[in-house]
Design a binder for these strands. Structure first.
Lengths: 334, 334
DNA sequence: CTAATTAACGAAAACGATTAAGGAGAACCT
DNA sequence: AGGTTCTCCTTAATCGTTTTCGTTAATTAG
């Protein structure tokens, strides 16, 4: 590896001069600067990020904590897409990504972050009650959280309340009043959606039917199917079922088909997420597509801004709306 | 951040002694060693990875080059799963992952790898004809490639030949002889599969029908649907269609349904990949599940072995077989 | 009892970069 | 002419580790 010293020797100047020339300091003559840069280019010089980090205490590395029930979150469609977008933005700003995990050498998340010297951390898809996560959030490290709000931190959240609201208003506009909701695991996201479900019904003047809300899980089509059967067996069947995610909705579709009904003629189905697959199956799912690209982008911009100017805690909560994908799984009743 | 110096001061020993004590060198007394470690623990010491990397020239970082037609590969199911598995293995060995990209500061892949000082690189899902990729592969950096073979490098490849072969033998065993194959973009993977398609048919004594093989693309259900229609309109219709991936197969399912036929009664459909979604749709897809977990794990073990012992180029090509997932999309004819 | 060996620790030089402080000329002003 | 100000560059310290080579004291050998 060619270092500053090599360039300095070749140019017969000091190392300091080379450093300053490459970093465009203004106390270096224009022609020496030019010459040094040419030689650097010719020698194929690239700075040593470790040395630079050691001296400047900034690594241009952003930690990413994406953990999902024992998995890394990479195989979770929603977070993979958020991360993809996040990564794209950070890259062009010269930041690389380091996954924070507690596996390696039995460090905690915070220890791992300190060890690697990341400039900041973005946290998502994680158990926010975890002691280690809390420690990280309360640490001096710049943090942006996704889909979870901490009062002392910047957060970017998908608009779950708005999403639920617009879905319900949409199906209601098509004439549905008996709207059931099979919802996911007990998390902040779920609580927001469920609250929005009740509020929106109320605003529309619909009385909630206790039999119509069932706690299920995320990404569990089997379970969703089971609860779908349960709903189908009610005397007062709903005309439309909302699911916690598209996979669950597919489980619902199957259960409905198995029970001898057809979607959307006999019963309407609504997903959540707007996964690619939801738009290629038949019937195409009506679902709410979260704006993963925007969430990732905003999170990236936020953490970078926070890193560059730690006092810029101006906006601490950014709501990212999504949009309804009108598929063919909801019937117009009126 | 607490450094070696802090510990040294507190213990009234030199920095060198602390370093050696923590690294378990044997020229440090047992009791001093113990004492130093206790203090280090109490002070919450963690080494500074940049300083260590600067000195030792090893970062315990592995570069990952996962690029997929302009995207990062994170949103590509197959590679997301491989990466997830890869990451899991590297983590427990104390290695972190750095995504290699050419976006940041207009570095080439190789430059980026050198800049970050990664100990090795794993490459997958990439255009292997790309000049920058070739440069990286021919560089002094330890490299393991996935699903592409270079004669001077270790590679881990999914058994595409075997996968295709077993799928065809399977449908043949159910009585199918008219087996069409809609295949993906022109890559090494595709060429292997297509070759295996012809070879297997030949071995089974079936004469290939030119109308039965159609070049399509990966993950393009629309296109797959179009070609499916084309196959359906043949005078001599196939009884079974193989697709390049599960998404395409879903596109096929839709096209078949739209044409008024049903799967598998009128025509059989076979996917590839064994995605989660392929197993929750109806009919459940018969498909070939690549062993992403094993591929990731083997790749991780290989690159780590190569990093630790650069001369260990013993095995240069590791074939990872998958398995057939028997769904309900293939009809038994005999 | 001296000489050689061993055990336990320290001093100091790296690694490659950044940057404050300073110095030598040349240019400027009065 | 003498002082001041720029301009452009160098010296040297520093970041936190690792590691080579001493050094000292204690131990063993002869």
């Amino acid at each position: 590896m060619v270092s500053l010293k090599d360039i300095a020797d070749k140019c017969s100047v000091s190392i300091a001069t080379v450093s300053k020339a490459l970093n465009d300091h203004d106390d270096i003559g224009a022609d020496t600067k030019k010459h040094i840069r040419e030689i650097a280019e010719k020698l194929g010089y690239f700075p040593n990020s470790s040395a630079r980090a050691l001296k400047t205490k900034t690594t241009h590395n952003i930690g990413v904590l994406f953990v999902d029930e024992g998995r890394s979150g990479l195989t979770h469609d929603y977070f993979a897409r958020v991360l993809d977008s996040f990564k794209r933005v950070t890259e062009v700003s010269g930041y690389d990504i380091t996954f924070i995990n507690a596996t390696s050498q039995k460090m905690t998340y915070l220890e791992h972050a300190m060890f690697r010297g990341v400039d900041g951390v973005v946290i998502a898809c994680v158990d926010f009650d975890d002691r280690d996560v809390i420690d990280l959030i309360n640490s001096p490290v710049p943090v942006v959280t996704i889909d979870h709000v901490f009062d002392n931190r910047i957060s970017v959240v998908s608009d779950n309340v708005g999403g639920m609201k617009s879905l319900i208003e949409y199906v209601h506009s098509l004439g549905h009043e008996k709207i059931a909701y099979i919802y996911g695991d007990d998390t902040a996201v779920t609580r927001n959606r469920v609250a929005s479900y009740y509020n929106t019904l109320k605003d529309l003047g619909i009385r909630a039917n206790d039999n119509y809300t069932i706690a299920s899980a995320y990404r569990n089509p089997k379970l969703a199917g089971k609860y779908t059967e349960q709903l189908l067996s009610l005397r007062d069947r709903p005309t439309c079922i909302l699911y916690p995610d598209d996979y669950s909705a597919i489980g619902g579709l199957n259960a409905i088909e198995k029970a001898g009904w057809t979607v959307p003629d006999d019963i309407s189905v609504v997903g959540y997420d707007g996964l690619y697959v939801s738009q290629i199956i038949h019937p195409k799912l009506t679902t709410y597509q979260q704006n993963t690209e925007e969430i990732g982008r905003v999170a990236a911009k936020s953490i970078i801004r926070l890193i560059r100017d730690p006092k810029s805690t101006l906006i601490d909560r950014i709501l990212v709306p999504g949009k309804i994908l009108e598929g063919g799984s909801v019937k117009k009743l009126n």
